[in-house]
Nucleic acid binder design. Sequence first.
DNA 1: ATATCAATTAGAGTTAGATCGAAGTCAAGT
DNA 2: ACTTGACTTCGATCTAACTCTAATTGATAT
Lengths: 131, 131
Amino acid sequence: MYTINEVAVICDLSVHTLRYYDKEGLLPFISRNKSGNREFTEQSLGLIKIICCLKNTGMPIKHIKQYVDLCMVGETKVDDRKKMLVEHRREVAKQMDEMRKNLNIIDLKIALYEKGDQHEFAHHLEPARSE
Amino acid sequence: MYTINEVAVICDLSVHTLRYYDKEGLLPFISRNKSGNREFTEQSLGLIKIICCLKNTGMPIKHIKQYVDLCMVGETKVDDRKKMLVEHRREVAKQMDEMRKNLNIIDLKIALYEKGDQHEFAHHLEPARSE
DNA sequence: ATATCAATTAGAGTTAGATCGAAGTCAAGT
DNA sequence: ACTTGACTTCGATCTAACTCTAATTGATAT
């Protein structure tokens, strides 16, 4: 059993954020002890890690909630869960591709600077027959 | 010469966004025609593409502004510009690495679902001696 | 010249995702 | 009993990056 503070450290989230996630319905699986404090099991930690993983790859909180809800209803929805992940996987792959392209452009630009080739303004601001 | 609408289409940005960028000082290089409308040159387009590239890789508007400002003062700041890009490049590489790791976790999870191995709640919610 | 369309501005509003503050509860230690 | 400190809630606030509104001006077509 872990307290909210321990989970915050383990998962690199703030306590605020964890409570916020709970409020948003992302953590329906945690229970409370007799004084009303949240108790996190090993199993919770596992799912929270998945949640972070989805969040860090840009899945919106609302979709994450959908996924978690599917996790809570039991085996019946395994196909749906898998479908969500596969779809998200595709999304992430697309993002990475975009990223790669942009990285290439940045690299190209750096290479130009390396060549002393600036391609910018100011240094050839001859008005070029301003109309 | 391009109008704001044409640029919006070419760069896949809304007209609103372009004006917002201008207001934020990201487009100090564009001029106005006699009726006060923005005029975009071929050269502007080039820099706007770089701006988008930086934005799409997560550089905040404020940093982009710094970069653009360096572009405007001429050759003197080529080193600084390059430094900014190199630094950002590193940042982006880090992001991609994170992304890759998360993608792996997602793939793992998908594989588990494929094996019919769910690892979630509900289906073994025997109270496990609740305390 | 009048209707329509495209562009302008300043500034308000929106969204997502936190992040914080105030006020209060609870349990352990001295 | 009292302080300490971790926890609670609710609601306000914050930031980034738009997104929209309203009122207006200017250019184009009939």
